[in-house]
Design a protein around this nucleic acid. Structure first.
Length: 421
RNA sequence: GGGAGCGUAGCUCAGUUGGCAGAGCACCGCGCUGUGGCCGCGGCGGUCGCGGGUUCAAGUCCCGUCGCUCCUCCCA
């Protein structure tokens, strides 16, 4: 009986891992240049962290979260996003006590139960930053600048990218806006889906990103959040736009952009690619000035974003010139006969300890076949047989030039770097 | 959540009105006894995604199921 993998959770095979590794390295380096330090939080959290932090009514929590009781009945969840866990850790470890801006980044798997397709898995990988502790609109802009830079660094270029921006106001603005929405939608309640008729009471904001066609049609003419901002929020938004202009970052105002998570306040944004199909969002984020307090910390403003690794992998691997097999090994040992094989194992061990990547055949291949393997996987072949053993030598063959030289076995193992460049 | 398509060898895919499951690549061996890349010959390799049904006979037709992909939606 063959046991298969779980739907929506995929293996990243050795052919792909080099791309993932270089991507991770680029992300880490970019984040470090912007002053962020890595934080690693657990994959499993209490379910209530997300239902309270992200919002009970959000699609992510309500429909997509993996929730399960542990052996003592505690409700746990596989994290669907990392902002809430990072803020939890920030509060729990008193990072706010330093009275400074905490600039944190993370990288890792997230879990959402939804229909898998290209660029959307149930286990997927996100990278993201959280800057916790400042309300400065310049910081909003800096975070977006970092997002842009990351794409430039990956050579995804500006031409296929665009920045969507909106402000959804603060908690004080929300009631008025909510009432405006409620009033608007209530007048057309019979055209709403049953789900949204319920949302009319619980969370009218969510109606704006309902999937039903009827609700979407109504949403197009719904009141806009940007028209319901308090003076402070309006000023903040204007400052953010001014700073973006200073940094040379073009953006599109999108009044329907509300983002799927409840914790956002004021600034929300998405960085999208015109080269991806339906899953065009590369990264999204915004300000969340109420979350730290909501999770038990002092009132603390914050901004951040998160992006999907899978979508970057799609873009990067689809562009030409990706891949191409370069030999992984410095040297491939080809022994002839049992005695050579035993002696060869010692040689290999010495080479590896000297920092030379080396391997040999364990498949009982013929000499010819072993040479073939050497030819495609290494820069040098080392041939060790009865003749060489009798002379205390080993033959080194440069597989690119075909040039072959016999060297003393003892000298070679003592200082292999003198022979392998 | 709604709609459509596709699952055949490790990989890419053929498979006719239902009639002996194939090719290329990869892998292994040989030509070439201890030397890779080119070439030739041979070989290994299959629960035809899974489960039922129709039929003398199913990879092929029907139903279900699982998986993948695409559109829509959402978003990362």
């Amino acid at each position: 009986m063959r046991v298969e993998g779980v739907r929506g959770m995929r293996d990243i095979l050795p052919e792909e891992t080099p791309l993932w590794q270089s991507l991770e390295a680029e992300i880490r380096e970019a984040f470090a240049h912007w002053g962020y330090r890595e934080i690693r939080v657990p994959v499993v959290e209490r379910a209530e962290l997300f239902s309270r932090g992200v919002g009970e009514e959000t699609e992510v929590v309500d429909k997509q979260m993996y929730v399960f009781p542990d052996r003592k009945g505690l409700e746990l969840a596989l994290r669907p996003e990392a902002t809430a866990p990072v803020v939890r850790a920030y509060v729990e470890h008193g990072l706010h006590a330093r009275g400074d801006l905490a600039k944190l980044y993370y990288l890792g798997p997230m879990f959402r139960y939804e229909k898998p397709q290209l660029g959307r898995q149930r286990q997927f990988h996100q990278y993201g930053v959280e800057a916790i502790g400042s309300p400065d609109p310049a910081l909003d802009a800096e975070v977006m600048d970092l997002a842009w830079h990351l794409m430039e660094r990956l050579e995804l270029g500006r031409e296929g990218l665009f920045l969507r921006l909106n402000s959804i106001g603060c908690r004080e603005d929300r009631p008025a806006y909510r009432e405006a929405l409620r009033g608007y939608f209530a007048a057309h309640a019979d055209a709403l889906c049953p789900e949204c008729q319920r949302r009319l009471e619980t969370n009218p904001l969510r109606i704006l990103d309902c999937k039903e066609e009827g609700c979407r049609a109504l949403s197009r003419d719904a009141p806009r959040s940007a028209d319901h901002l308090c003076p402070d929020c309006r000023a903040h938004f204007a400052d953010v736009e001014a700073h973006l202009a200073d940094l040379g970052l073009a953006h599109e105002l999108d009044p329907t952009l509300v983002r799927g998570l409840d914790y956002y306040t004021r600034t929300v944004f998405e960085l999208c690619s015109r080269d991806l199909g339906a899953q065009d969002a590369l990264l999204g984020g915004g300000r969340y000035n109420g979350l730290v307090e909501l999770l038990g910390g002092p009132p603390t403003p914050a901004v951040g974003f998160a992006g999907g690794m899978e979508r970057l992998v799609i873009l990067l691997s689809s562009r030409s010139g990706a891949g191409g097999s370069v030999p992984d090994l410095d040297l491939y040992l080809v022994p002839i006969g049992n005695e050579a094989k035993r002696e060869g194992a010692k040689v290999l061990s010495a080479l590896r300890r000297a920092g030379i990547s080396a391997d040999t055949d364990y498949m009982s291949r013929s000499l010819r076949k072993a040479m073939q393997v050497a030819g495609r996987s290494a820069r040098y072949a080392a041939i060790l047989g009865p003749d060489e053993l009798a002379r205390g030598q080993i033959k080194l063959k440069d597989l690119a030039s075909g040039e072959e030289t016999a060297v003393g076995l003892a000298q070679f193992t003592a200082d292999p770097r003198a022979f392998i460049r």
